[in-house]
């Protein structure tokens, strides 16, 4: 019988050291896996366990899946030790993905923190591939220190795309850093977007999501204009094991990108 808990085999083709704490695994699944931007996979470190990750690559390239991983605990530690040729497992895709239809014709504000730029990259690639459909894409990104700016080699390439602008900041600079210093929320003050025609999509640590949300509401965004990439521990990925809920919503089924208006009154939204 069909088994929703079986991890499909995938081989690591390449390991890219992005930052001191983040590595990208380039995977080749045994069979190509079709996914929508923003849907996530449960990645298995064999014999150890699974953890949820949103691929950062384009959904239009199904045989090659890039997953960027921050070293944070047991499973991610094991994934960081892996080398090209090693086998991993994949289950998914799960979740609803980014609400691209909602974003059409809008000024899209994308706010990322740290490794949060990894899932957002799949959103950005989807937006860039179809840029005619969106009024504007404005990216605000922050990391703790310059060395932790994920995908920094791509920023200038993105800035060249028509209707795309990007501002970057770090919490603390270093001797070489010439750019802005300050939390990513500082990039949200006095936004030059047409807020009434804008949607915001944010991904990063829970504490960042909390203050980004407050700042956006302060700037005039309504709750229904804000999408948050929520973080929760996950297990089954299919809405059955009970773990990843925010109120009645299961992030694995209804998210992980949740419209803030739907979840704002439930307990522990920002954990």
């Amino acid at each position: 019988m069909e088994n929703p808990y079986f991890p499909l085999p995938a081989v690591i083709k390449d390991v890219i050291e992005e930052t001191p704490t983040i590595k990208t695994l380039v995977l080749r699944p045994e069979k190509p896996i079709a996914f929508k931007a923003g849907q996530f996979m449960q990645l298995t470190a064999p014999g150890l366990g699974e953890a949820p990750f949103t691929p950062s690559s384009s959904p239009n390239v199904a045989e090659r899946m890039e997953i960027s991983i921050l070293r944070a605990g047991r499973v991610t530690e094991a994934l960081h030790e892996m080398k090209p040729g090693d086998a991993v497992g994949l289950r998914g895709p799960f979740g609803k993905g980014y609400p691209l239809d909602k974003l059409k014709g809008a000024e899209v504000l994308v706010v990322g923190g740290g490794v949060g730029l990894a899932p957002l990259r799949s959103l950005l690639l989807a937006l860039f591939e179809d840029i005619g459909k969106y009024k504007r894409v404005s990216v605000k990104y922050g990391a703790k220190i310059p060395a932790e700016l994920l995908f920094h080699r791509l920023f200038d390439e993105w800035r060249k795309i028509d209707k795309v602008d990007m501002e970057v900041t770090v919490d603390a600079g270093d001797d070489a850093w010439q750019g802005r210093v300050g939390l990513v929320t500082t990039l949200l003050k006095d936004l030059d977007l047409n807020i009434a025609q804008s949607y915001a999509v944010s991904c990063g640590p829970a504490i960042m999501l909390k203050f980004v949300t407050f700042e956006l509401l302060h700037e005039g965004y309504k709750p229904e204009q804000i999408y948050l990439s929520m973080n929760r521990r996950m297990s089954c990925g299919t809405g059955k094991c009970g773990r990843c809920n925010v109120g009645p919503y299961y992030l694995c089924k209804d998210g992980p990108d949740m419209n803030y208006a739907l979840i704002k009154d439930y307990p522990n939204v920002f954990a």
């Binding site: 921050l70 944070a72 047991r74 504490i207 973080n231 773990r243 522990n268 954990a271």
Partner: peptide, 17 residues
């Protein structure tokens, strides 16, 4: 598993609801 356990929804990297 049981939702009453402290480790039920514990996340690596913090942010446990």
């Amino acid at each position: 598993d049981a939702c009453s356990y402290a480790g039920y929804s514990r996340m690596a990297g913090g942010g446990t609801p």
